[in-house]
Design a protein around this nucleic acid. Sequence first.
DNA 1: ATTAATATTGCAACTTAGTTGCATTAAAAT
DNA 2: ATTTTAATGCAACTAAGTTGCAATATTAAT
Lengths: 125, 125
Amino acid sequence: MGITRQTKQVKALIDIFDNKKTAISVADLVKLLESKMNKTTVYRILDKLMDDGVVHSFIGKGGLKWYAKCQDCSCETHNDVHPHFQCKTCGEVECLSVSFKLPSVNGYKVESASLLMVGECNACA
Amino acid sequence: MGITRQTKQVKALIDIFDNKKTAISVADLVKLLESKMNKTTVYRILDKLMDDGVVHSFIGKGGLKWYAKCQDCSCETHNDVHPHFQCKTCGEVECLSVSFKLPSVNGYKVESASLLMVGECNACA
DNA sequence: ATTAATATTGCAACTTAGTTGCATTAAAAT
DNA sequence: ATTTTAATGCAACTAAGTTGCAATATTAAT
């Protein structure tokens, strides 16, 4: 189940995603919001926003969890098979709105995939 | 710098990779070897085996670090742009020896990429 | 075979991400 | 205004991964 009550904590988190084009790591969100809410609350709200199809999550190059606003997702399916690009210098992550086709693998039922491309962003190059 | 002394801890780790086709997470390695060596040692040897081009690492679906034996890597370059497949049921990870082409991204210098495909393996299906 | 140099290891303590249980607080429906 | 219960805060916890330093064990030199 997703979000049912519009608390000020929920509003604060949604506000961040509305005003941010790029992705953000949970660790950064917790730091960013530490004066406004507990870290447990951050984790719990993010879970619910996932269920609602408002945000999607993925794993960054260091193994940390990142979140970004969904573009074409519904509550039922997260259609974010889009790749992510992470800058090795500044660490920023962007969702790439291109599609890519997975290599065919014989015998395995592939249900989801995540592609992380690492390099240098325009700002750091 | 890589490995210079052939200690019994180093041999134990290399032995595991030699007798294992699939990948293994660092957490599992630490547990597997806890009677034989300290976890710090496991982490340090893995770093060196990376430098030597003996193993390569990647991030699994839960954000944990995994290692597997290299097939076509040298000390200079890790050519493991191959995808990995992780079973959502048993958690096992396999290196897939297929190549895939990255989507072209305008303006970004892509230096490395990791593709993780998640689904169900033959054993669990 | 000893000895000396130093790479490697073990240990303890630490950092950080993420989780859990429970009492308290605050939406929102009545 | 009251009641219901979803949501929050807090403290304590687990687990991954790191660091500094003293002790140990390879390896090279004698």
